[in-house]
Design a protein around this nucleic acid. Structure first.
Lengths: 153, 153
DNA sequence: TATTGTTATACTCTATAACTATA
DNA sequence: TATAGTTATAGAGTATAACAATA
C-alpha cells in the first residue's frame, strides 16, 4: 500500500483521495479561481489579464516575450490578451527605440488608476474564498505553497 | 492599500502577487497537475480518468450522474470519459435492475488489478512534485487545503 | 411530465507552424 | 541567419440545448 505522504498515518479506512495533496490542491484552486473570475467579471477581466496588469504596474517596460513567460502562456496567447487590454485602454505597447522589433509594455494612466482597485477586489476574493481559514492558517498556507513552488523568501 | 491576508506584514516592497494565496495555489496546482499528467501518460490515462477509477474502486455501483458530480464535470463529459475507460477494459456500465434508465458503474477485474499500481504511481508523483516540503510540511499543507475545501476530519 | 444518459454543437483555452519586419 | 511579434489553425477541454428511452 502507498499513500502520497507517509507521515500521514495510513488508515485503510481513509479514502486514498483524502491523502493526496494534488487532489486537495486542485479542488482548492478551482474554488478560489472561480471566486476570482466572479469578482473580476464586472470589469470584463479574466484572472490572467488582471495578473498582467499587476506585473506591468510593478515592472513597466517589459517585453512581450518576458511577460508571456511570467504568465506561463505562449506568445500568441499574449498577443490576444494585450490586444484586449489596449482596447480597454488599460495598457499600451510602445515601440522600442533601440530594437524596433520589440515593444515596451506599460499601463496607461487609466490602467494605473484601476489596478489598485482591482488588487483590493482580488484580495477580498482571496480572503472570502478561503474564509474557513483564520489569518494565521492562511499565512502558513501561503508560506507552504510558496516553498512548494520554489519561491525565495 | 490592501493585501489578501492582513496577518502578513504589509511591506510595500513585497510584490502584491507574492501575498496572494490564489496565485500561489494556481502555480502549485499547475506544477503538480503536470507532474501527474506525465506520470500517468504511459497508461494513456488523464488525471480525471484516474480519479474516476479510484472513486469507483471505493464506491462500486455509482450512477453516472453521481460520478459526474464527484469529478466536478458535466454528464456529457463523463460519457466520453466512461467510453474511454470501457474501451480500455478498466470499467463497465451495468444496466440497473430497478431503474432501467440508469447504469451502475464498476471496475472490471483488470481495472481493479491496475488501480493499486496507479495509486502508487500517483502517490510517488505527489511526493516528487512537492519534494521541497518535508513530510510534516506536506501533512500540514494537506490539512490546510482540506480545511479550505470544507472537508470534514 | 420528469429523469438518465446521450448526441450535437459551440465556445474557450491552449499549442504549433508559418509569416512579417526588423536585427 | 536569427529574433520579436503576429497570424492562422487545429486540438483539447468545457458548457448548453436538444434528443431517446424509461420512469
Amino acid at each position: 500500500m502507498s499513500s502520497p505522504n507517509d507521515a500521514v498515518p495510513r488508515d485503510n479506512a481513509t479514502p486514498w483521495l483524502d491523502t493526496a495533496v494534488g487532489y486537495a490542491l486542485r479542488r482548492a484552486q478551482m474554488k478560489m479561481f472561480q471566486h476570482l473570475v466572479d469578482s473580476l467579471a464586472s470589469y470584463d477581466l479574466r484572472p490572467a489579464q488582471f495578473t498582467a496588469l499587476v506585473i506591468l504596474e510593478q515592472e513597466p517596460g517589459l517585453m512581450q516575450a518576458d511577460l508571456a513567460r511570467r504568465l506561463a502562456i505562449e506568445p500568441p496567447q499574449l498577443v490576444l490578451l494585450l490586444n484586449k487590454l489596449e482596447r480597454q485602454g488599460l495598457a499600451e505597447r510602445v515601440r522600442g527605440t533601440q530594437d524596433r522589433r520589440a515593444y515596451a509594455l506599460h499601463l496607461t494612466d487609466q490602467g494605473r488608476a484601476l489596478v489598485g482597485e482591482l488588487k483590493e477586489r482580488a484580495a477580498a476574493s482571496d480572503r472570502a474564498a478561503s474564509a474557513s481559514l483564520d489569518d494565521a492558517e492562511r499565512a502558513e498556507l501561503l508560506r507552504l505553497l510558496r516553498k512548494l513552488n520554489g519561491d525565495l523568501g
